[in-house]
């Protein structure tokens, strides 16, 4: 017998559905209208419908595709690096952390800092005349690279993001790795599996759902990056470090191209949905 009947269930769900409709549905509907309208700050309350011109403008804009390319590269590379380093740390530090769990606190420290603050911090740390890194490079080697110059900016931004968010991947992997039952490891050992084989054939398959989830959480975070990039390089020389979020922000507030910015965000929303459904399908197929 059901604990609540169908009518009661609906009654319980009503506030949640109402909340979602109001706080998510309303802005989504407004966005859809703006994306097919000619609208400016002066006409926010009276946009005039103009068809799909904003979408055409976005898709024909070389800067939009530059931003998509930046976000995609940034998202994939940071997610990959964070997961690989996080996994390495989880596997090698688990025995240590089992005995000295207090070490977890300093490892988690970067997660406590707001990304915008991280950006500002590295602006200082990497500055040729104020930062410790260039100072010591000049002391030791007589020169220092331009960390935020056009040739190195992308690599520097990658490193900054990876340093901040690897602890997040590490935390997830550590929990998953530590949760593998001891009996499973003992059985693998009795069957003659070496540590490497046990990791590859036993432990990693058991951690796979966590690995996949961590990768995509980090990919999504990397793809929509804004704060630290904006604080460090802005949109970069010639727009070279314009992420999709920065593109939308600039089109909306700086360029006043509200329809175009909203159209770009709708395109991003649809692309995200497609990726999520694709992932769902892949993981579903894997389970079967």
């Amino acid at each position: 017998m059901a604990i609540v009947n169908r009518a009661e269930g609906r009654a319980y769900l009503t506030p949640l559905v109402g909340f979602l409709l109001f706080f998510l549905g309303f802005p989504a509907a407004v966005n859809l209208v703006y994306s097919i309208s000619t609208v400016s700050f002066e006409t926010l309350r009276s946009p005039s419908l103009s068809g799909f011109g904003n979408y055409a403008a976005v898709l024909a804009d070389r800067e939009f595709w530059g931003a998509v390319s930046f976000s995609m590269r940034f998202g994939v590379l940071t997610a990959l690096a964070e997961c690989l380093i996080g996994l390495f740390l989880a596997v090698f530090l688990t025995p240590l952390l089992a005995k000295r769990s207090y070490l977890m606190a300093p490892l988690m420290l970067p997660l406590m800092v707001a990304p915008a603050m991280i950006g500002l911090m590295y602006r200082l740390v990497l500055h040729e005349f104020a930062g410790p890194v260039p100072y010591y490079l000049f002391e030791w080697f007589g020169d220092s690279p331009a960390f935020l110059g056009v040739d190195n900016a992308f690599r520097t931004l990658l490193v900054v993001e990876i340093l901040q968010w690897t602890p997040f991947a590490f935390l997830l992997f550590y929990m998953a790795y530590a949760a593998i039952p001891l009996e499973v490891r003992e059985a693998a050992s009795l069957d003659g599996a070496s540590a490497l084989k046990a990791l590859w054939w036993v432990e990693l398959p058991l951690m796979l759902p966590t690995l996949v989830i961590a990768f995509f959480i980090r990919f999504i975070d990397g793809f929509r990056v804004f704060d630290n990039v904006y604080a460090l390089t802005g949109s970069g020389a010639g727009g070279s470090t314009t992420s999709l979020s920065i593109y939308i922000y600039q089109a909306f507030f700086k360029g006043g191209a509200i329809g175009k910015a909203v159209a770009a965000s709708v395109v991003l929303f649809l692309a995200s949905l497609a990726v999520l459904y694709g992932l769902n399908w892949i993981t579903g197929r894997g389970r079967r």
Partner: peptide, 21 residues
């Protein structure tokens, strides 16, 4: 001008000039 000048604005300029370099 410093190699990082493409990322310089007000604060960086003050720091660079103020360093005496």
């Amino acid at each position: 001008s410093p190699k990082d000048s493409l990322s310089y604005e007000y604060a960086e300029t003050n720091a660079a000039y103020g360093s005496g370099q």
